[in-house]
Design a protein around this nucleic acid. Structure first.
Lengths: 334, 334
DNA sequence: CCGACTCATGGTATCGATACCATTCTTGCG
DNA sequence: CGCAAGAATGGTATCGATACCATGAGTCGG
């Protein structure tokens, strides 16, 4: 193989010093005299040298890489979490290695395995349901693992999120208190979307004594959030014609439901209240006047990054379950 | 340092073979007899072994990592591009290392340098404006570099995108042909957002002989897309009261403008047409009836992944500038 | 003036894998 | 039966950095 990259040895020769001195000049400049520091800097600039951090990771046993596994990119809220993570980790000199599971535990298991192959210093998971073999792999490695967007009772290592159950419950309570009598819940039906399941439970808890009206639509490859919302509302009004409120599991579904209500000339909020979940500014929830649960995805990402940096630098963590809360934003749709 | 990870040597000992045989059993199973293959598999399972791919990268000089640098996560369309990339690369056994520049060339330069430190097999950039030192670093390394979302005349290596200029021009033409006389253009004012600049140029080209009405709002830390849209429309109607159409540089701005129009009781599309750019289903442009330019961000990501896989496996590329096109979706707002 | 100490620097082993070459053992064919 | 070809396996050097220990020069206090 022909020589492709400039190495530390090349720089050392050009600067007339030992390569270990080059290493120090780059990592811990304080330990090197000003004169050599400058010689090294000149050689680096002249040769266009970029240190090979993977080799450094091998010998120092610290990769400065964090693996992140998210369920999906389709919910735009996750994008802001990734952004927060990426920003926060960059400040600590760490990089983000990314993968998506599409809510498949099998995919998650494979991704965890391939990401571990890169020897990350920590892992971030947006899910708290894991296969036994995944858990085994994670605990065996002894890595800091931060679970996001949920608050499991016993996190593997730490968790940053909020109670999906409490949030859905709060939303349903709000509808009950504003006089709604026949409240339905609309969701996509992914077996391993625990966040959606917790929200459905929160909804049901707020309606003791009532028969819950839960519609779960099977996922289709060609459908996007709003498609499920439209189709779902149609199906709900057919099954339970007296429904006067629909709690949607996400803003995307609520947006679709909103459109369908328009097509059916159902007055919102007069005849029907519609609520969402997420509230990312860029997504038109506010423009449409959608009542929704606001989650600060960016803050979750930043907090997770801070936790990760603390854990990898050996600091003790004050807390393992960090509740970032949620807030109910009431707008015109309820 | 205490021993943390199981190594290939441990597996070899447990299986009673040489470690090179373990390597072959995992990478090229065909070169190993069925009996040893099973012994190795058993040892791997028993010890919970995960191969260290960074060490492998060091000796094979192929990291199977692709670095991606995006301008921002705030435009949800980028999220779908990242999704396409991540999916496509995963199929080729490659991983995605991510960073964001926030439209700062300085940040881009730093990110390119730190990402190169991880010795990626390729780089993906969502921008085609680069600092001279960044270009030098990139060409010196001889890496495949794929630029996304634009179509520069001379890509560093390859580009997958569409003509922002042609798209904005098509939108403006549409407005002219539907009888609009006083068309304004609304954008945020980021010096290095070349996509926005190209769109402004396309807009101006479609109005020969007219004085273009371009409003650029300075970016603020606390503002999101819709905020600029609202504020921008207010300012436009004040500066040019007879404006009867606004071409917004993104859907997020259009959504904000839409709200502001409602607050001012400006009839859309009667008195004022509003158009956007992007059209991600989850964002609700369709629900609001927004006329917009549809870009298939996911397809751009997939295509870029395919190109990257081809380039890293040494295949010749049939094309270096791939135009993924755009389509104008007319809805109620124009 | 000398021992103890700090500061700057270098040498060598090591991290965990793969590349390359060598070796052994089969197998087929003249 | 003998030899060449090929399959399976192993040994050793190597990738490019850092860790650890050693060394030599200069400084300070007794």
């Amino acid at each position: 193989m022909q020589k492709k990259w400039v190495t530390m040895g090349d720089v050392a020769r050009a600067a007339g010093v030992g390569k270990i001195t080059v290493s120090r000049a780059l990592s811990t400049p304080a330990k090197v005299s000003a004169a050599t520091r400058e010689k090294v800097a000149a050689a680096v600039a002249e040769l266009g040298y970029v240190r090979d951090d993977t080799a450094g990771a091998l010998s120092s046993q610290r990769s400065r890489v964090v693996g992140a596994i998210v369920s999906t990119f389709d919910q735009p809220t996750f994008a802001s979490t990734i952004r927060g993570l990426s920003e926060g980790l960059a400040q600590g000199g760490m990089h983000l290695l990314l993968g998506t599971t599409q809510y498949e535990p099998q995919t998650e298991a494979e991704l965890v395995a391939t990401l571990m192959g890169r020897r990350p210093d920590a892992l971030i998971l947006t899910s708290s349901e894991h296969r036994p073999e995944t858990r085994a792999l994670l605990t065996r490695a002894g890595l800091p693992v931060v679970e996001l967007w949920e608050l499991p009772d016993a996190p593997i290592f730490a968790a940053v999120g909020f109670s999906n159950r409490a949030a859905a419950r709060a939303m349903t309570d709000h509808l009950v208190h504003t006089g709604r009598r026949a409240i339905a819940f609309l969701s996509t039906d992914r077996a391993h979307d625990t966040r959606a399941h917790m929200r459905a439970e929160g909804y049901a808890e707020a309606l003791p004594g009532h028969a819950p009206r839960i519609l779960r639509l099977p996922p289709r490859a060609d459908a996007t959030g709003p498609d499920y919302g439209s189709q779902g509302l149609a199906q709900i009004m057919e099954t339970w014609p007296d429904t006067d409120a629909v709690v949607c599991v996400s803003d995307a579904l609520a947006i679709g439901a909103f459109c369908e209500a328009g097509r059916r000339s159902l007055d919102v909020p007069g005849k029907l209240a519609i609520t969402g979940f997420g509230d990312v500014p860029e997504v038109g929830a506010s423009a449409l006047g959608l009542t929704t649960i606001r989650i600060d995805g960016h803050a979750i990402g930043r907090k997770a990054a801070a936790l990760t940096l603390a854990a990898t630098s050996g600091q003790p963590l004050p807390e393992r379950r960090i509740d970032m809360g949620f807030s109910l934003t009431r707008r015109a749709s309820s």
